[in-house]
Amino acid sequence: MKETKYWTFHIFAGILLLFVLGFHFLYTHIGELLFKESDNISKELSQGRDAKTSFLVFFIILLGLGLYHGLYGLKNILFEIFSSKAVQKIIVIFILLLGIGLFFFGSYSSYLAHKNAAAKTEVSHAK
């Protein structure tokens, strides 16, 4: 039953990722077609996005969904290859640590980047 829930969330995360990651690609990486500007990843534009709270929330959602969907998929593949219960336990622990660690590292970094960029924006507005 638990596994069914995890699997359902894997599917659900995949569908959401189609839109969230699709938006990320269109907004950040396929700028030439939509904005006639392929340099949407310049330092200034990146800091401009970081300064907005909406983008901070967006990055954390993308991070969480991507990590869950990707690492759960990896777990399934590894379970198929390694059938030993002991090895499977190690795989689960490794993937959980990797996922949780990267989620907190990525979220905290995004938060710091948001704080720094917002402070810079305030300074430039004050000038």
Binding site: G66, L67, G70, G73, L74, L102, F105, Y108, S109, S110
Partner: peptide, 19 residues
């Protein structure tokens, strides 16, 4: 899927350095 995951993990580390 494995290719995207590999790139995604690297992307998290690289983009986190902007902090």
């Amino acid at each position: 899927g494995l290719g995207i995951l590999f790139y995604f993990l690297m992307h998290i580390v690289v983009t986190s350095l902007r902090a």
